[in-house]
């Protein structure tokens, strides 16, 4: 008898609640464009914010509400995913450029002497708010790895010997999380380049040449030799530091040989038959 009573009670309760739930669900139903869901499913779901939106959902909403695909690009999914989305929405995708994070500093301890001991919380952000850094270069990498902890994909690790970040280009999706985390602005997003080949100035020091030279042996001293030798006018020297515009660079590597401090890095090129000068290649880019 008791069992019967219990079962009846529970059944009745269940019925009442299900009816209530049904009506509540009806009342508070949110009308939503079904395409948002569809687009979100196509996106990689990393929620990295590399597209400039709060996450994949926000990006999907923006894509659906946007008129064209101009300026919308998911760095994680790349052109493949963007093409799929465009197809699903009946639009044409705008070809985006796959980017990769590049560390523009080669100042390992053997080229850049440590001149003081930092003894605070191990974060570049905290250190940068205190002083220029524990070397005489006030622009370069501080080596405490804010970039590594910012990377959502585990693509950045710190080299304990060189005290510089190593970017695993296989993992890097170019979301720019590390670049944003770096208080010194040492990390730049650059085009992956033809066959993953890249030439860039691995230094951001804006001090005058003599000061830079004193602080670091592989710093850019702003001499401008590279800019003179560049046949494509891709190199500009501004504020005592050279910058190679990757949209103009044709990867000829003339500047690499010209640079007196070997501050220009060329990565993923096949070894040359007769090397004229030993060219320092930052380890982090070797695959």
């Amino acid at each position: 008898m008791i069992i019967l009573f219990t079962v009846t009670c529970l059944f009745a309760l269940g019925l009442v609640f299900s009816v209530i739930l049904y009506f509540v669900a009806q009342k508070f139903k949110v009308e939503e464009d079904p395409r948002i869901e569809q687009v979100e499913k196509l996106l990689p779901g990393a929620n990295c914010g590399g597209c400039g939106n709060a996450g994949c959902r926000a990006f999907a909403e923006r894509i659906v509400s946007a008129e064209s695909m101009e300026g919308l690009f998911c760095p994680v999914g790349g052109n493949e995913v963007m093409n799929q989305i465009a197809e699903a929405l009946g639009r044409t995708a705008v070809e985006g450029d796959a980017k990769v994070a590049v560390v523009r500093c080669s100042g390992s301890p053997d080229c850049r002497k440590r001149t003081s001991v930092y003894d605070g919380y191990a974060s570049c952000k905290v250190m940068a708010s205190l002083y220029k850094g524990d070397t005489d270069c006030s622009y370069g990498c501080l080596g405490l790895g804010d970039c590594a902890s910012a990377c959502e994909f585990g693509g950045v690790t710190m080299d304990p010997v060189r005290r510089l970040p190593i970017i695993n280009t296989d993992i890097c999706v170019g979301c720019g999380g590390c670049a944003e985390a770096c208080p010194k602005g040492v990390i730049e997003l650059r085009s992956r380049g033809l066959k993953e080949r890249r030439v860039y100035v691995s230094c951001v020091n804006r001090d005058k040449g003599a000061v830079t030279r004193k602080a670091c042996t592989v710093g850019c001293i702003g001499c401008g030799k590279c800019a003179k030798v560049c046949p494509f006018e891709a190199i500009k020297v501004e504020g005592n530091v050279a910058y190679i515009d990757f949209t103009k660079c044709r990867l000829c590597r003339k500047c690499v040989d010209e640079c007196p401090t070997h501050a220009i890095a060329a990565v993923n090129f096949p070894p040359r038959p007769v090397p004229e000068k030993p060219v320092e290649q930052p380890k982090e880019e070797e695959q």
Binding site: G120, Y121, S123, K125, V126, S129
Partner: peptide
């Protein structure tokens, strides 16, 4: 704990 190190950056 370096409380103030953290709070300073947070305040900024």
């Amino acid at each position: 704990i370096p409380l103030l190190d953290m709070i300073r950056t947070g305040t900024a």
